[in-house]
Write a protein that binds this DNA or RNA. Structure first.
Lengths: 118, 118
DNA sequence: TAAATTAGATTACAACAGTAAACAAGGAGG
DNA sequence: CCTCCTTGTTTACTGTTGTAATCTAATTTA
């Protein structure tokens, strides 16, 4: 079961907009993204073709796009890929690395610990 | 300053071998990696061409390969890319996500906290 | 020394990704 | 009703990546 979710770097901004709010028309989506319109059209179509998003025809000539892949599943998939690729699947290695590289400080962790005490 | 280090998925196993130990010949490197030899040769050459590794001619006909890019810099670069791409650069978002997805448990974190008390 | 092995270089090729122009058809406005 | 605009579709092109066969020159071996 290879459930790698394939969303490319340049497609991701579109997904982020749709994850904020479903059922948007292409002009609505593109309004929140920078980049050449023609390019964005291509990316939108590719996402539909891949089954990552879907399009519904509301009235004639009015299409609304929605995410099919949900944000959390994408994130989980990315995390898993990252972990496997870079840290051979070891969570400990990864966390230690984040800490020792000082991308994450002890304070960050403490704050986090506090947060999840709930 | 775009210091993205470009090492692809299929090139990474070679790098991992070289990060373990420098100055290895290609047969030594390939002995520890699965995959078609011809393919591995291509990947090795691409890494040299990109300046990620270097090759020294020891004796005539004896070449030794070594990493130029160091492991920590690669990991740092990957972490940064991952953070920016998926979590818009927010460490907190990322850690929270790791925890809430239960990829990382409270125990993992506690253990980590204990470890870095040194 | 001739044959076989070895290892780096060259060539190849399909899929994917980033980018974008051109096209086509329906709807809106004059 | 006809023209323009809008929006989805088609076509296109370049670079990257994964994969691998073939070529070539040197070295080892029989």
């Amino acid at each position: 079961m290879n459930n790698k979710i394939n969303i490319t770097t340049s497609e991701l901004p579109i997904m982020k907009v749709l994850w904020e709010k479903d059922n948007q028309t292409s002009p609505e989506i593109f309004a929140n993204i920078e980049g050449n319109i023609s390019t964005l059209k291509t990316l939108l179509k590719r996402l539909v073709d891949k089954g990552v998003i879907k399009v519904d025809e509301i009235n004639s000539r009015t299409y609304c796009y929605s995410a099919i892949v949900i944000k959390n599943d994408y994130i989980k998939s990315e995390q898993k890929g990252f972990l496997n690729r870079v840290f051979d699947g070891s969570k400990e290695k990864m966390l230690l690395s984040f800490v020792s590289e000082e991308n994450i400080t002890k304070d960050d962790l403490q704050q986090l610990m506090d947060m999840i005490k709930d």
